[in-house]
Design a protein around this nucleic acid. Structure first.
Lengths: 193, 193
DNA sequence: TTGTAAATAGATTGATTGGTCTAATTGAAG
DNA sequence: CTTCAATTAGACCAATCAATCTATTTACAA
């Protein structure tokens, strides 16, 4: 192919800008400049900004779940340790970049929830993907006895994801690593059988 | 006084609009219309939109912590049950209004984090107020043995607040009450000594 | 090479944004 | 009542927004 600027490049640029600066605070001009394409190309690829936003959410969702699945495939660790290891990798990544990144789904869902059905739906769908990936691992751990069965798999998964998302929120509001550490400590406690 | 439109009325209107539709997605015109004041009055009260935003955050912070403190003052319940009762009241409120509200601090911090120092600072300060209020109660419970001491008070508080914030995020992204219930179940488990 | 449709460039559009400005109104002090 | 500053009203402004439009280039089929 050897295409200079593919659609994926634009989605990647949008993903980074939306994660850093939010959806409504990122203008199309900024996206065009960052992706190095022209306005004509953008509107050839995407119907409008919302259509672009929805595709960015899916791009982020696939990109994230692929990485999560890869990390959770490592059978040398038991399911509980696999989850703890995954979040350790994630936390290290946030720390490495000085906590400037947030979770796109978290930010976007807060920004457009209840006012933009199409984007809200995309957030919801991708959150569900996250849940399925984590739940798979938690179910395996509950079956082999390495993860607590005090709550059913789905509830425990949602509680865990909620605590992680919330820790990212506190992190981004200037508290740095402290909420991430509190999350990791509590995660150990709540997964232990 | 008998003032028709006080500054607090504008702050309240802004708080509701920002919670519902986000900061960047709420124009000043919408605020003026909702508060029933003129542009001149608005810019007489506030230096600019950011100054208004910061004051709205403080207004929301005080309004919330006052309510939280009131609920946690009820000494007929032990500290653990007081916390569980508080979140039960909150969850009932969200349910009553069909999950349309989010937490202003959560939404705002995601929207302006890392790009608007003044507003980010206001988010951080008010989150800290939340933490202090909850931590007081958790410390009391750890001392009288009704709350787990597996984690120190501040870490446990942050983990709890993170899980609550994250549950609100998932709630607003269209999952309705399920994440709130998962949060409440997990809360019981993590507070129990 | 030619024909044709897709992709690209970027000027331009109308609507909306946050913010300013002047004039009118208000309210309290003297 | 008069005075004068504070408040309010709302027209207005430049900047920016998402989106459209036409001209041009590119890519590929015949």
């Amino acid at each position: 192919m050897n295409v200079k600027h593919s659609k994926d490049d634009v989605l990647k640029a949008g993903m980074e800008l939306f994660r850093l600066n939010g959806y409504h605070n990122t203008g199309t001009n900024e996206i065009l400049k960052s992706a190095g394409i022209s306005r004509g190309s953008f509107y050839n690829f995407f119907k409008d900004k919302d259509d672009f936003g929805a595709q960015v959410l899916d791009y982020y969702g696939v990109w994230s779940t692929d990485y999560m699945k890869e990390l959770l495939r490592d059978k040398r660790l038991n399911p509980r340790k696999r989850l703890i290891h995954l979040f350790d990798i994630f936390v290290q990544g946030y720390k490495r970049d000085n906590f400037k990144w947030g979770c796109l789904l978290v930010g976007m869902s807060q920004e457009v929830g209840q006012i933009n059905p199409k984007l809200t739906e995309a957030c919801s769908t991708n959150f569900e993907s996250f849940i399925y990936v984590f739940q798979d691992c938690i179910e395996e751990g509950q079956q082999d006895g390495t993860i607590s069965t005090a709550q059913d798999a789905r509830s425990l998964t949602i509680a865990m994801l909620a605590m992680y998302n919330g820790a990212l929120v506190l992190m981004k509001s200037g508290m740095h690593e402290e909420p991430l550490i509190a999350f990791q400590n509590q995660l150990e406690l709540m997964l232990k059988p």
